[in-house]
């Protein structure tokens, strides 16, 4: 949210950077910043849980067992059981895939829409820029969470629509950054050179401007990933979205909320913690990546 286009473009075509130099830089940044290393560790853990989780969990996350309902954490049920006797640990682990999937899909969608629209706007200017800016302004003028709620409520209660809604409210962030960056570059030396070499405008845009913007946009992705997870969980919390009996962190917190006061704190706590850790990891990693790719912009 604090990313502002600043400074002059120092970028050159990536090739000349050299892989070895980049790795050296990466090692330096990570070495200097233990927090970033930690965040990469967290990220690895999440990916492992998302990929292998369903195969590894000790219990069937969907199987109820009402005889063992509402049991506190124990050696058998590490995070306890919920109202229907389902194992919360297994559900929390399995939910990683769905939550990360929703966040990833929406971020990719926002990334594609935002980068394309933003870059085109910044590069061409004129009407393209005006239209894109108006769309961005309109979305920004909405209270974003309520807009997402509205979209999901209106289009129907499905995972696809959660992804869509989250992508739409993230769109302005991408479009803005992309527009600013493309704008700076549209008359940069290497772009002029590409033009003089006889490339058409779309070719210049796609072949020379866009590749230079992509790393920045990738940073933006990891920064908004956390926000996307929170947003999707918030939607489930108020009952929109994921269908039962699928496990999803937000809906698990919502279900557990009613049990906190009666002392069954584990139902809401563990999915809540998982949610927190995932978002935390992404936010730290986003910062770290930014340091890595774009040291000028360190904050």
């Amino acid at each position: 949210m604090t990313t502002v286009a600043a400074g002059l473009p120092a970028d050159k075509p990536r090739r000349s950077t050299g892989t070895a130099a980049f790795l050296r830089h990466a090692r330096y940044v990570i070495g200097e910043n233990p927090v970033t290393a930690f965040s990469f560790g967290l990220f690895g853990l999440l990916v492992l849980a998302a990929v292998f989780g369903p195969a590894l969990v000790p219990h069937d996350p969907l199987a109820s067992n009402t005889a063992r309902a509402l049991e506190p954490p124990s050696a058998e049920f590490w995070f306890g059981t919920d109202q229907l006797g389902r194992d919360i640990f297994s559900r929390v682990v399995v939910a990683t895939r769905l939550d990360m999937g929703i966040a990833l899909a929406s971020v990719v969608l926002a990334f594609l829409m935002g980068t394309l629209a933003g870059t085109a706007a910044g590069f061409y200017g004129g009407w393209t820029e005006r239209i894109v800016s108006r769309i961005v302004d309109t979305i920004m003028a909405f209270p974003l969470f309520v807009l997402a709620m509205g979209i999901v409520a209106a289009l129907g209660n499905t995972v696809t629509n959660i992804v869509l809604a989250t992508a739409i409210i993230n769109f302005p962030l991408y479009a803005r950054v992309a527009r600013a960056e493309a704008n700076i570059r549209r008359n940069a030396g290497y772009v002029e050179a590409a033009r003089l070499a006889g490339n058409s405008e779309p070719r210049v845009l796609l072949g020379h401007v866009l590749p230079n913007i992509l790393p920045l946009m990738a940073v933006q992705c990891s920064l908004t990933m956390g926000y996307a997870i929170l947003n999707a969980a918030g939607l489930s919390f108020i009952g929109l979205g994921v269908r039962p009996p699928d496990a999803e962190w937000g809906i698990m917190v919502a279900e557990g909320a009613a049990f906190i006061v009666s002392g069954e704190w584990w139902i809401a706590l563990f999915p809540g913690l998982a949610l927190m850790i995932a978002v935390f990891g992404f936010n730290l990693m986003g910062d770290g990546l930014r340091d890595l790719i774009d040291p000028r912009r360190r904050t």
Binding site: V35, G226, L230, A233, G234, F237, G250, V253, A254, A257, I260, A268, G272, L275, M276, I277, V279, F280, N283, L284, D287
Partner: peptide, 16 residues
């Protein structure tokens, strides 16, 4: 770390 942790908290969960 502290500020990032803050922005990582789902508000509905912290509130509860």
């Amino acid at each position: 770390v502290v500020t990032t942790a803050g922005v990582s908290l789902p508000t509905f969960f912290t509130g509860l």
